[in-house]
Nucleic acid binder design. Structure first.
Lengths: 151, 151
DNA sequence: GTTATCGTTGACGTAAACGTAACATATAAA
DNA sequence: TTTATATGTTACGTTTACGTCAACGATAAC
């Protein structure tokens, strides 16, 4: 009877839920990582019996986690944004505080963007320089071949 | 006599050299970190006696290290770029390989830029939403005050 | 001359972010 | 029914990137 109940619960949620394995495959992370992020308060899937079930909201958060990590944020920084976002529907003092945090995050991201543009600039300079060297190399090789075939 | 020799060496390099402490203050990092990055092959200052002396090239690398870190690269990834850059004046095979690596780095940075733009977009949406809520709050408070002063 | 400052090496400690191993349970497939 | 596969918990291991002493040498300031 318990098992029947569980099955119907699962069916009632079907279509917008994922197992831990599905998410792990989709985003190419280990299930261990997903559970770890839950431990750290970044995810809160519902439970069907002992199993975790992830809904759209959890999936969205997973995306945010991965993006945050790619941008070099720590897990606790990422969690902080979640917590703030959840709390930001309260009184004006909370809202003001949240606005301040958002501005700080923005400054951080803007700085990162500048770093990124600088890095991309330097990269394309290196690229051009490298191609130039390569052209010179190939010219030399060509002329060597000619002198060989002419000799 | 040894000491006199050292002093003149230092003078001969003056104007474009830095001590470890100077760099640490300028970039707001610890001397421990700077020595650690040297251990990891990211820096190679010259020695005057037992002391390290950093030249313009070292300072430039320090900047690159810090930028790389802000962008979320590991120390070995950063070192890799240094090594490649130093080797990239060789034969055409090396050059081709280097070009490939550069393209890979570029893809990585482009992805990061996309992440960054996405994050900035969401951030400003949050920001606007938050300000909207705040305006509503304040309107309510104002009307409350009016009804008080009118009562 | 000693006190303070700056620098050196070396060893050990630590927080973050997982990986790995061990073992249990549950469900699907053969 | 056995086997394979997915999932769960717990505990310990590992890597990265430093921090934190400790113990010492050289140099400048008083």
């Amino acid at each position: 009877m318990n098992q029947v109940r569980q099955a119907s619960d699962e069916n009632a949620l079907k279509g917008t839920t994922y197992t831990i394995g599905e998410l792990a495959r989709e985003f190419d992370v280990t299930t261990r990582s997903i559970r770890f992020w839950e431990d750290q308060g970044l995810l809160s899937p519902i439970r069907i019996g002992s199993k975790r079930l992830y809904r759209r909201r959890d999936r969205a958060r997973l995306k945010l986690i991965l993006r945050g990590k790619r941008l070099g944020f720590t897990l606790s920084e990422i969690r902080e944004t979640f917590v703030l976002y959840d709390q930001a529907h309260g009184e004006s003092r909370q809202l003001r505080y949240y606005l301040g945090v958002l501005e700080e995050k923005r400054r951080q991201l803007m700085r990162q963007r500048q770093d990124l543009e600088d890095a991309l600039d330097e990269l394309s300079q290196s690229y051009e320089h490298c191609r130039q060297l390569l052209r010179e190399q190939e010219e030399r090789e060509t002329s060597t071949n000619e002198s060989v075939s002419n000799g």
